[in-house]
């Protein structure tokens, strides 16, 4: 199994480097930082713009490959360059990464945990009331783009706050600015602010994962080995969970990495809508500012997290499916 994982890791590193190159070239070609520096009144002279561009490594007179090589050289040493606004990309990265990770991890954990449970349960009760009710809700959620879910939750919160006359549900930012008090109180405040954004991501994730799990579970429910387990005299619960769910979880591990893409996209929108200062908000702002270095840094973050999710999915798959570990020897 170790060999298998190491090989996957090597493959992912190759992908990462190619992805970095791809996003750098795209960003350099599509965005024009020159416009950012030129858009002032009065318009500055060309040499000044050139100097400013060179200072951030975005001189568009140099060939793209040379610029990428320079950037990559710095990046390999841990320096992601300078943002177009003059701040260090590394510093901004560090400030924002924690924010995004909190949201991503919570959303994923919620989505998978609740999704798998819901999917398995509705599969066992196929076509009965709980299944039908849950299917309706899941379908509805899957038909609403994540940004709209976030918006609707926000609107609902505003309406509730207005109706009650107090700030019942806080949703802007990670915490109430300027709040003091006990650690518990601060934690509670943070938890309250976490609620809506996590729900926005989590609800759609739950809907997605539960549909996949239900499908996988249904495939398993008709299998012969469940019948054998029952024929041994095991209780229905043992048959469904120890033999059924255990086997149905295997295909889910491959969906995990696909599903994570959805969570990442959702988190990007959610941050912007709820005013969380994370990577997603930074990305949207950077594109609008033609900030190539920042855009590439965010892409790198996205690529790394997706690949990590992929690696995790591979580990999960190997853990859940012993046949993968052994490479299929025949006796």
């Amino acid at each position: 199994m170790l060999v298998f994982l190491v090989k996957r890791l090597a493959y992912y590193v190759v992908l990462l480097v190619s992805a970095a190159f791809l996003s750098y070239v795209l960003a350099a070609a599509a965005l024009s930082p020159r416009a950012y520096f030129q858009a002032r009144l009065p318009p500055p002279p060309a040499e000044q713009v050139d100097r400013q561009l060179r200072a951030v490594g975005l001189d568009d007179r140099r060939p793209v490959t040379a610029r990428f090589a320079a950037w990559a050289g710095h990046a390999a040493r841990g320096d992601l360059g300078v943002s177009i606004t003059g701040t260090s990309v590394n510093a901004e990265f560090g400030r924002r990464i924690g924010v995004s990770l909190r949201l991503l991890v919570l959303g994923t954990v919620l989505g998978i945990g609740a999704g798998v449970a819901a999917g398995a349960w509705t599969a066992v009760r196929q076509y009965r009331l709980p299944d039908r009710a849950f299917t309706v809700v899941a379908f509805l959620l899957l038909s609403i783009p994540t940004f709209l879910v976030a918006l609707l939750l926000k609107i609902a919160a505003i309406a509730v706050n207005q109706a009650s006359g107090r700030q019942l549900v806080a949703f802007t930012g990670e915490s109430t600015p300027g709040l003091t008090g006990s650690t518990l109180g601060l934690l509670a405040d943070r938890a309250g602010h976490l609620l809506l954004p996590t729900l926005s991501i989590g609800l759609v994730a739950i809907a997605t994962y539960s549909r996949y799990q239900r499908s996988a579970m249904l495939d398993v429910l008709g299998a012969d080995y469940l019948r054998t387990a029952a024929a041994k005299g095991l209780s229905r619960r043992a048959v469904l969970i120890k033999h059924g769910l255990r086997t149905a979880l295997i295909p889910m591990s491959t969906f995990f990495s696909f599903g994570f893409l959805g969570v990442l996209t959702g988190a990007t929108f959610t941050e912007k809508i709820f005013g969380w200062h994370g990577m997603g908000e930074w990305f949207i702002d950077s594109v609008n500012n033609n900030d190539v270095n920042a855009v590439v840094a965010v892409n790198l973050f996205a690529a790394v997290t997706v690949l990590l999710a992929g690696l995790l999915a591979d580990v999960l798959h190997a853990v859940l499916d012993p046949r993968v570990r052994l490479g299929g020897r025949r006796g």
Partner: peptide
């Protein structure tokens, strides 16, 4: 496919859309 799946499509399209 693996390469293109490394980032969410949203990111790439957003970058390229100004053009």
């Amino acid at each position: 496919v693996d390469l293109l799946l490394v980032f969410p499509a949203f990111l790439i399209i957003a970058i390229v859309s100004p053009r």
